[in-house]
């Protein structure tokens, strides 16, 4: 490390003195500036930490909203004809408006509206960002969960009901576990999208990973290493996540053994 710092200082002085650096020397200087100088790697890690925090918060909001909307809409659709619950009808319309508006407008616009209009007085950009991402993700999760609930054969619900279990008990023990298994790949995909979309909160000042990278290349005027480094970190997190998801999926597939 000491030697690297020395080497950097030397090469930097040469460059400033008008001397041309060769490819590897230039590579080293940029790399050092982007990651090691002034312990800048700490900034990326802090950004990554914030990225993960925002992802988890958005995930929780998204899953809760999504499952809630999906179950309410499915319950509305599965009511016995002639016994429709008017409250559920109203809730269903609200849910439909929510998914339509969220899915029909760009994520970036939603973020700007939340950050600059609705919560314009808030300084907690990351929290506003997480909330926006969660609300956005919820609309997609709702449709994924709904498709999962509908993918379970009607006979499973009928069998549960014919044994005298009520709608919610049958949902909980029979339909939802089978639905989760069916939607896990789609849900994993949504979570990966969510993780990467956290980079958008930069536009409202959320200090996540991309924000750190931008701050660094604003000083060094060399965007390549900060950006590639950020990309690599996202990639590593996504690969890790995909791997974990694969393990989880295999465990859920246990009942498919033949």
């Amino acid at each position: 490390m000491e030697n690297w710092a020395l080497l950097y200082e030397t090469l930097k002085a040469q460059a400033v003195g008008g001397e041309r650096l060769d490819f590897w020397q230039n590579f080293f200087v940029q790399f050092y500036q982007s990651f090691l100088l002034n312990d800048r790697w700490m900034q990326y890690l802090q950004g990554l930490g914030r990225t993960l925090e925002v992802t988890v918060m958005a995930l929780v909001v998204g899953v809760i909203l999504g499952v809630l909307v999906a179950v309410l809409r499915t319950a509305h659709d599965q009511q016995r004809p002639g016994r429709r619950n008017p409250v559920l009808g109203v809730v269903n319309v609200i849910c439909k408006v929510y998914t339509t508006v969220i899915r029909g407008t760009p994520m970036m616009v939603q973020l700007l509206i939340m950050g600059l209009v609705i919560f314009s007085s808030s300084r907690n950009f990351a929290l506003v960002g997480a909330l926006t991402l969660g609300i956005n993700s919820g609309a997609y999760v709702a449709e994924i969960v709904r498709s999962g609930l509908m993918s379970v054969e009607a006979g499973q619900m009928e069998a549960g009901r014919s044994l005298g279990m009520n709608y919610l008990t049958t949902m909980r023990f029979i339909v939802v576990p089978q639905a989760v298994k069916n939607i896990l790949p789609a849900l994993g995909n949504e979570f990966i999208t969510l993780l990467k979309d956290t980079s958008l909160i930069t536009v409202i000042g959320g200090k996540e990973m991309l924000y750190a990278a931008q701050a660094i290349y604003a000083k060094t005027y060399a965007p390549m290493f900060p950006l590639v480094g950020t990309a690599v970190m996202y990639l590593i997190v996504v690969i890790l996540f995909t791997w974990l998801l694969g393990i989880f999926e295999r465990r859920l597939r246990e009942s498919d053994r033949r």
């Binding site: 006979g155 499973q156 069998a159 014919s162 029979i174 009942s255």
Partner: peptide
């Protein structure tokens, strides 16, 4: 039922 409808997720 005609199609048995055993709960597929349970043993």
């Amino acid at each position: 039922f005609q199609h048995f409808n055993l709960f597929n997720n349970l043993n």
